[in-house]
Design a protein around this nucleic acid. Structure first.
Lengths: 219, 219
DNA sequence: ACCTTTCCGTTGTAAAAACAACCGACTTGT
DNA sequence: ACAAGTCGGTTGTTTTTACAACGGAAAGGT
């Protein structure tokens, strides 16, 4: 687990905390590590969570399959990001989604109670972690609102424009690379892949944008 | 402001804090009250927030209008609920939505910095408020995920089934009353009102459900 | 080098949604 | 009591999407 301390240091959760302090806090927060093969499930719909999960290697998708097999990628977790903050309240019910490793992945679990219950003087940086978690959840909240902004658009074209505009803005450039292939982007925006592909090409033909694979350029 | 202390006591934010303690904390948290007439904007898209807003009277809608006038109700704030938790992080940018009073409303603003910076011993219950805010944001996070679950369904019927099923579950009954009229529900689910109305009636004719105004019964 | 798999664009068809327009019932204000 | 406005259902048309199926290019493994 110590190998991953440099990665933890760069996470939102431990921002501003030194590696030495993190090492000390690992036991204080009851940290536990686990690895998953590509395709393995980290969590299943219906489970009850009591931990914050930080991804230190690989990539996770939070996804939901409905009764008829339509898959929606609710979110994508990259190295350094975490999962489970939506379920830290005691009254939170069961997990609503599946969490799947789409690459070989390593995660570290932190006991929620240990985090939000400020412990003895042993953890001088504990309050900073609490504040970091605050900001992190708040940010994730905001991201969900943004995604909602995209998906609530009525047509595939509008969804694409909404998403791509934001990516351009986020990268401060009309050219950028998105972290999804076509199928994943379609799932993310909750539309049909072929229809979306079609719409993308129409937009390209109309001169709205250019793309090659995952690299886009807005005009 | 003191008139609303009983209401604050029943909010998530002040759960477990006595009215006397709340009264003491109001100044500690730099609480400020403001009233709005029906239709007035509490916040406009593009503003920067530094406060948590608690609604103590009336009703608010968080909504977004796109370039072409389509309105999406991102969320609905009832008395006792709060807004602004998605923007408490210092790196949070501008507000992405409008917040509108749809009834004459009264809100109380709390300075974010004052909340998350634990103050001196004067506020014995401060840490409880911090923990409450944690759970509240976490819960809101979860609600957004649930709404995403509805909206990411492909068809109007599926969205309706998803939403209504959840309402039934939440009320522990096949019969329940929803807090939206038809237009608001359509906006919430990001679909066309008439198409949705049509679909609802089809589902009724197929025996899937019954309804009268906002009262629904699933079969 | 060959086979397999994945990815992405393309096409045609059927289904569904958006849109516009209208009407009757019910509220609300005066 | 009347006028104006809101609300919800209905219908027909146009636009958009979902779905299924195919093929070529690229990637990956043996």
């Amino acid at each position: 687990m110590k190998n991953y301390i440099p990665i933890l240091k760069r996470t939102q959760l431990f921002a501003g905390v030194s590696e030495d302090e993190i090492a000390l806090m690992l036991s204080c927060l009851d940290a536990r590590m686990h690895t998953y093969k590509k395709g393995e499930y980290v969590f299943h719909q219906g489970e009850h969570l009591h931990h914050i999960t930080v991804l230190v290697e690989g990539e996770l998708h939070i996804q939901r399959d409905d009764y008829w097999g339509n898959r929606a990628i609710v979110n994508r977790i990259a190295v350094g990001e975490m999962f489970g903050e939506a379920y830290i309240a005691p009254q939170s019910g069961a997990l609503l989604n599946d969490v799947v490793a789409i690459e070989d992945s390593t995660v570290i679990f932190f006991d929620v109670k240990r985090i939000i219950t400020v412990c003895s003087s042993a953890c001088r940086f504990h309050s900073m972690v609490v504040q970091n978690l605050f900001f992190a959840i708040s940010e994730k909240n905001k991201k969900l609102l943004q995604k909602l902004g995209h998906i609530s658009k009525r047509t595939t074209r509008e969804k694409l424009i909404s998403y791509l505009s934001e990516e351009a803005k986020r990268n401060n450039s009309a050219s950028f690379v998105i972290p999804f292939n076509r199928q994943q982007l379609a799932d993310f925006l909750s539309v049909d892949r072929s229809a979306m592909s079609n719409e993308l090409c129409k937009m390209r033909d109309e001169g709205l944008l250019e793309f090659e694979k995952n690299a886009f350029k807005l005009m």
